[in-house]
Nucleic acid binder design. Structure first.
Lengths: 239, 239
DNA sequence: CGTCTTTATAGTCGTAGTGACTATTAAGGG
DNA sequence: CCCTTAATAGTCACTACGACTATAAAGACG
């Protein structure tokens, strides 16, 4: 079977599924929708939908992201293809091949209900279990990918608003990894990485609570982290 | 468009494309097939083909790998999903969504011609340009992915036969990365990583050429490399 | 108005990892 | 028998990092 040509081919339905992750109240949350129809009626699922005839998977994913979050502008958001799930039995009705994406949001908006009656809701990651289809697996893969990329990329700023403190940035790592990091060491490492964060020159303080006001930073132009930020600050699993 | 249900869906053709990489004569090679039909007749392309009705993409990829290489047993070979390419215009005939894989081979066999007349051939990576469809892009992505995974995983042994010398293992890194590594430092690093390689106890030497015979090693159980093997031994780009 | 708490920031110290070397060993080629 | 080649052993200095202590600047609470 060389070069697509010789044989008849089976038509497949192609969808995108989105693991939209954000931080709310110091916990990792994922956007879920409640299914209205069979199969899996009443179960929670990752938002997603069919590819339109003239769309790439990336285009469809960004369209779905806008629809489900209700955000007017999703162009700046981090959207990343995870992998494609194609087990023959993953949808009981027919062959559905799904291209999965992970999306990262800074300030989580309240999800609006889309055009249909399905409900969308932010759910803590730990409670997002028993999802429809193979979405448990997709969601776990998304978290693994994001956690891994925090180590060697500057992805963490995608969870933060335009201006943020180093404490907030550290909270991203601690929340996604589930480990505590030493604050002075984290600070030293981040500031020593050129282009990771840039200080906001003028108004360099922000406070919502107690303690000394923290300086504000913006995301810098760097995308990779060399050497990586290790996952083992106090406790941690071995290699 | 929630949960797959509401709208009619477009049927797509789904294929797998394989970037089969190996080392021949100290250079990275990729397995290419010559296309017999339009579009891109006479051009070289990555091997691949349609998903069968009851196959996952992984199953189809491994089947194609066996067909194209002529190897009887491909179960032990490293096969890894890269990403899915779904641009609407990537195939001029129709909507074809392709799930791309990277495969790594130790001893490259001479490719056999498959059932059809198309020719398969090992081509040096640097000369594999002007491929059909978006296969230039897929091939470049495969090389990027493999190169990156060499840094922080034990993937390099997938390019080596069952027993190999540390010099051969170092050659994998140098060939894929295109950089020279310091031999004593490489040796120290590899041996200091538990589970990366294990010495072959009995006959611990092999020679095909000049020089002191090298000890033989096998791949160990470890899969990740902590801390990673940095890409900058003598010369190298900055972070 | 002071003290306590909280958070940010500054700095110190010892160690592990590593880049850059040099030296030695064991083979083959002329 | 030397020369070359490649593997292996070992040294040394520097840097990054984990662990830790100290100081600064805010609000809370009496």
């Amino acid at each position: 079977m060389r070069g697509y040509d010789k044989h008849a081919f089976e038509p497949f339905a192609v969808t995108v599924d989105l693991a939209v992750l954000t931080l709310r109240a110091g916990a990792l949350h994922v956007l879920l929708v409640e299914r209205g129809q069979e199969p899996y009626a009443g179960r929670w699922a990752l938002p997603g939908g069919f590819l339109l005839p003239e769309e790439s998977a990336e285009t469809a994913a960004r369209r779905e992201l806008a629809e489900e979050t209700g955000l007017a502008d999703v162009t700046g958001l981090h959207l990343e293809q995870l992998r494609t799930y194609s087990e023959p039995a993953r949808d009981p009705r027919m062959r559905v091949v799904s291209v999965a994406f992970a999306a990262l949001l800074p300030n989580p908006p309240e999800p609006r209900g889309g055009g249909d009656a399905a409900e969308a809701r932010w759910v803590p990651y730990d409670k997002a279990q028993g999802l429809a289809f193979d979405h448990d697996r997709i969601l776990a893969d998304a978290r693994d990918r994001v956690g891994a990329k925090l180590e060697y990329t500057c992805l963490a700023t995608a969870f933060c608003p335009a201006e943020f403190t180093l404490g907030e940035l550290q909270g991203v790592y601690e929340t996604v990894w589930g480990t505590a990091l030493d604050r002075p060491n984290f600070r030293r490492k981040v500031l020593a990485t050129p282009g990771f964060v840039e200080p906001v020159p003028g108004a360099a303080r922000l406070t919502g609570g107690r303690g000394k006001p923290a300086a504000l930073y913006r995301a810098g132009p760097a995308t990779s982290l060399h050497p990586p930020l290790p996952r083992t600050p106090r406790e941690g699993r071995p290699a």
